[in-house]
Every structure is written in structure tokens, then in C-alpha cells.
Design a protein around this nucleic acid. Structure first.
Length: 570
DNA sequence: GCCGTTTTCGGCCCGACTGTTTTCAGTCG
């Protein structure tokens, strides 16, 4: 699967062309092409085989040829040619704050800077003094930003950013009377990682809001502080931007700062064609302001229904909105169950009873106890005798109350040979089997997952790629083969809602569901508060355009039971 | 480089902030 690799290559080509002073339109064309490849659900190699590359919006004659070249030879000659003119090290400097393409080109030209080391030396030697556009402050900032980048953490996981923005909003809300306060940006779109936090305030006194913001206790450094906008770096290195707008512009600003950039560009192109102009203050016809107090009004001015933030990625949502076929996205309140939960029996913290209580608190009607299996020694996996007792205990608990149905299940390791981790007769006694790979990641994962799907006892694949966000790439899978096996067997695939995993991801979940594969959203909880990560799984599902009907654990108990009995064929 | 209910050529989103500038370029989102 080369989609990502080619997307990254196109990004690099765009960066290098920019430094070369190429037309920004050509540069943007490459960025659009990269974005298109990244959102692509199909394998780009297959598109090529079927001569359908040109059908992808943003891929024209030129980029199609480069994709073909890469697939055939593993290289793109244009990229290699550019690398001869723009050193690799220069590209990395592109991400240092304040260093854009123009400055880099100038530094390369005048000082023969080819990378970070060169730049640090040149700065120490005072060689930047007197260069065009290089004043005292700029050089000072450059030194700071270089040092800062060296220790900066980069992107953070959604689940890390979430509580931070909640805390900031609470502190800010208590200090200043703002009319409305909302997260925006990739956080509001529920992207799996975020590079910074965007916050929007609607207020008649922007200066007070910004002043309070830059003085929040967790602010480490103020990057900028103007009349309507301030940027700071929080403890831990995460950048947070606050934008303050007048209340009548709140909708337009929220729309604008939620993005994505690609989505917004599309909207503004549409606006231009009908003689409107959209900016963060509203929608304008000439001088006249025709919309902008709410997001709905902005979309309505283009003849569109409101589009949920999670869909705003320029992945076809605007066409869908135009044709009035936006799905009614799943919501957290639709969830009736969590079907991947651990207890004290293996490596969880709660007893069966406590687990049930916590599930009931969240409004669930059923849940599955899925402790680790025999060979999962690292996680206190249950040997067969203990599992038998565990099953009995769970079934006994069900008889003591009628608020919730607990399923006696397992999260069975998929062993290196693709077999499940208990004898068939024991698996047959379980109500529910989640099958997951936890070891031997490189040993034919596709084949093992398919074999696990084909086992009659298996109900669902847990965290199918094994990835850990920002830590570990998932194993390479043959998605076509895997999804076809899921379709053939009727089994489900999980969106693991733990924010370290979010596995399936949005693109794959959309593809799987589109093929008719039942999707589950589970937290894989080990502690009570893990249950609250369900919202991140819902975020992935919404980004995948899923409705409640697409997700098995929104179903009523009776419907679920009928499905479960059909799927689990012992 | 891509694209077409105004176009196969001529367009391509828009504004804030900073710093180096006497009127604007570069960067960023």
C-alpha cells in the first residue's frame, strides 16, 4: 500500500518547489494531490491497474504519471532532481517557526546553509546580521525557535489534547465573561492527533479575553498577542491559539477556524462563483454582510445544510451536502454497549460488579467481559480452568439483576499460526470472542487475521492494525483480502476507542462499513475512566461517516442477540 | 499542476501578526 508514501513524496516536492520559488499554484496542486492520496480509501496501485488514477480529484496528467513512475521504479525523477538543488536538511528546517520558503532560499543562496547544523553555526558566528530582512529581533527569534524545536514534542494525541482544552476553557470562562467559547481546528474535527489547539471566543471585549488568556497559569511563552488573536505555548510544549471575534461573527469564525483548510478553500471557491465572499467575519455580497452569526447561516448562504465538523476534510462531504445525502452521524448517546472490557481477572482494575455499575452509569444495556487469554502472560491472561470459573461468575451475576446483560467473553490472542488461544470446546462455551494480535506482529498478520475471522467462535477483530498513535506503526495489511474475509464471514471489525489506538482509523472504517462490514466501537477499558474514551471512538466513526445503524453496539439487545447468534457459530 | 453551468486558457481563498519596513514582505493558519 503506497498511498501514504506517495503522499509524503508529493508534500516534499511541494516544499522543495516552494523553496525554489515555483508558482504557488503549482505548489498547492501538489499539496492537494498529497491530501487526495491520503484520504483515498482504495490502494493507489489498484487505481493505476484499472487506469482510474485520473478519476481522483486533484490528480491530473502530471501527478498520475509520477504515481505510475513511483509504482514501477520506487522513485520519482522530479523529486530526485529537486533534491539536487534543495538539500534535504533545508527541508527539515521548514518546520522551524519563522522559517518559510523565502527565508530558507535566501539562507541557502547567501550562506550556503544546507541544514540545521549550518544554521546554528552561522547564527553563532553572526553571519545572518545584515542579510535582507534579518533584523535583530528576527535573528533573536530564530535562535529561540531553533532551540525550542529541538525540545518540542510535536503533535499530541487527541486524548491528551482534550483534557487540556477543557481545563483552559474552564479557567478562561471563569476569568472573563465571554459570550461563547468553543474549541475549533483539528480538535473539533476529532483528528487522531493535533499539532496545536485552537480556541474561539465570541466577545464584545476581545482585549480582556486575550489578556486573560496569555496570563493563564500554564502559559510558558507568548508567541504573539494582537488585537484579535494570541498564540501561546503551554507547559508540555503544545501551542494554543485564541481568536476573539464579535458575537455576530461567531458562526463565520467558528466555521473558518474549524477548517479543514481544504474544506474551507472549497467553500470559498463555491462562494466566489456565486459572487459571495467568505471570511472569518461573515459572508459578504459586495459590502453587505449576508450571513455569519451561526455556522448554519454560513452553509445556508451557499445552499448547503450544516456539515458536521468531523466530516470537513474535503472527502466528498460538500458534494454530499449539495445532493442532500449527508448521513445522520452516530452520536455518543446512541451507544448501548461496550463489548471489549477487562476486569481484575486479567489486567483490569474492576470486579465484574464494578464493571457492570460503570457500564450502567453510562446508559449501557449490555457489555462484554473480555479478559486476556491463556498465552497472554504479560497481561495475566486466564488459563482454561480460570476462564471456566469466570464464565460461571459472569452468568451468575446476570441472574442477580436485570439492568444489564453481561456477555462472558475473551479477548483471545491470535497466535503466530493464526489459531485462537483456547481449545474449540472452550471457545464454544463463551458468549463473545474478540480476536486480537498482540505479538509476532510481522508474521503474516493478514493471513492470521483472516484465519481468526474464519474461526467459527470469533465475533470481531480487535484493534486490527496494532498501531500505537505517535509510537508504533501498524503492521502492513492486505486490506482488500482482509475486508473480503470479513464480508464473507459476516464478522465485525472494531474501532478501538482508546486514544492511543483509534484502530481502525477513519479512512479504513469508512471503507469497511461501505463494504457492509459490521463495525463495533469499543473502549478496551481497563479502568473505570477508560469508559469515557468512547467519545474518541465516536469521533473516528463520525469522521468515517458512520450512522448508528452501521455500528453494532448501538443496537437494541434483541437485535444484537439475533446478530450475535448468527455470527458466533460454534 | 489542475480544472471547466461564465473558460481547453486563464484563473486558482483570505486575513492577522511580526518585523523590518516608510508602504510591505514573509509567515502562519
Amino acid at each position: 500500500m503506497k498511498n501514504r508514501a506517495i503522499a509524503e513524496l508529493f508534500e516534499r516536492i511541494a516544499d522543495m518547489m516552494e523553496i525554489q520559488g515555483e508558482s504557488s499554484f503549482r505548489v498547492n496542486a501538489y499539496r492537494r494531490g498529497a491530501q487526495a492520496l491520503e484520504s483515498l480509501q482504495e490502494d493507489v496501485a489498484r487505481l493505476r491497474d484499472e487506469e482510474r488514477l485520473r478519476e481522483v480529484p486533484g490528480i491530473g496528467e502530471g501527478m498520475a504519471a509520477r504515481i505510475v513512475e513511483f509504482l514501477d521504479t520506487g522513485r520519482v525523477s522530479q523529486h530526485d532532481d529537486l533534491l539536487k538543488k534543495v538539500p534535504e536538511g533545508l527541508l527539515e528546517l521548514r518546520h522551524v517557526g519563522g522559517l518559510g520558503p523565502k527565508t530558507l532560499a535566501m539562507l541557502h543562496d547567501k550562506l550556503k546553509i544546507t541544514g540545521r547544523e549550518d544554521l546554528v553555526k552561522a547564527l553563532e558566528a553572526g553571519k545572518l546580521d545584515g542579510l535582507p530582512g534579518m533584523g535583530e529581533k528576527k535573528i533573536e527569534n530564530l535562535k529561540k525557535n531553533l532551540a525550542f524545536q529541538a525540545e518540542a514534542s510535536g503533535r499530541v494525541a487527541l486524548g491528551v489534547a482534550w483534557p487540556m482544552i477543557e481545563e483552559i476553557m474552564e479557567l478562561l470562562g471563569a476569568k472573563v465573561k465571554v459570550m461563547q467559547l468553543s474549541p475549533a481546528g483539528s480538535l473539533r474535527r476529532m483528528r487522531e492527533t493535533v499539532g496545536d489547539l485552537d480556541l474561539l471566543a465570541a466577545t464584545t471585549r476581545p482585549e480582556a479575553a486575550l489578556e486573560a488568556f496569555v496570563k493563564l497559569p500554564m502559559v510558558q511563552r507568548v508567541l504573539g498577542h494582537g488585537d484579535t488573536k494570541a498564540s501561546v505555548v503551554m507547559e508540555g510544549g503544545l501551542q494554543v491559539d485564541l481568536r476573539a471575534v464579535p458575537p455576530e461573527s461567531y458562526g463565520a469564525a467558528l466555521q473558518y477556524f474549524t477548517g479543514s483548510r481544504e474544506h474551507n478553500v472549497r467553500l470559498r471557491e463555491m462562494a466566489r462563483k456565486v459572487g459571495l465572499k467568505i471570511n472569518e467575519y461573515g459572508v459578504f455580497k459586495g459590502e453587505e454582510r449576508v450571513a455569519g452569526d451561526t455556522e448554519e447561516s454560513v452553509y445556508a448562504s451557499l445552499g448547503l445544510p450544516w456539515i458536521p465538523p468531523e466530516m470537513r476534510e474535503d472527502r466528498g462531504e460538500i458534494d454530499a451536502a449539495l445532493e442532500n445525502r449527508l448521513p445522520k452521524l452516530i452520536e455518543l448517546s446512541d451507544m448501548r454497549a461496550d463489548l471489549h472490557c477487562h476486569t481484575k481477572a486479567s489486567d483490569g482494575e474492576l470486579t465484574i460488579e464494578q464493571l457492570a455499575d460503570e457500564a450502567i452509569k453510562r446508559g449501557y444495556k449490555y457489555a462484554a467481559v473480555t479478559d486476556h487469554s491463556a498465552s497472554a502472560g504479560y497481561a495475566g491472561g486466564l488459563q482454561p480452568a480460570r476462564l471456566l470459573k469466570h464464565i460461571e461468575a459472569i452468568h451468575a451475576f446476570n441472574k442477580t439483576q436485570n439492568k444489564i446483560h453481561l456477555l462472558a467473553g475473551t479477548e483471545s490472542d491470535i497466535r503466530a499460526d493464526g489459531s485462537l488461544d483456547y481449545p474449540d470446546e472452550l471457545l464454544a462455551r463463551l458468549d463473545w470472542v474478540v480476536a486480537s494480535i498482540h505479538s509476532s506482529f510481522t508474521k503474516d498478520p493478514t493471513g492470521r487475521l483472516i484465519k481468526a475471522l474464519e474461526h467459527p467462535a470469533t465475533c470481531v477483530l480487535g484493534h486490527p492494525t496494532g498501531r500505537l498513535i505517535l509510537e508504533r506503526e501498524g503492521y502492513e495489511l492486505d486490506w482488500d483480502a482482509l475486508f473480503q474475509a470479513a464480508v464473507r464471514t459476516g464478522k465485525a471489525i472494531e474501532i478501538n476507542a482508546n486514544y492511543h489506538r483509534l484502530d481502525l482509523d477513519d479512512v479504513r472504517a469508512r471503507q469497511a462499513s461501505g463494504m457492509g462490514i459490521p463495525i463495533l466501537i469499543n473502549t478496551d477499558m481497563h479502568r473505570a475512566d477508560n469508559f469515557d474514551q468512547m467519545k474518541f471512538g465516536i469521533g473516528v466513526a463520525r469522521r468515517a461517516w458512520l450512522t448508528a445503524a452501521d455500528v453494532v453496539n448501538t443496537w437494541e439487545w434483541k437485535k444484537f442477540e439475533a446478530w450475535r447468534k448468527k455470527v458466533k457459530r460454534d
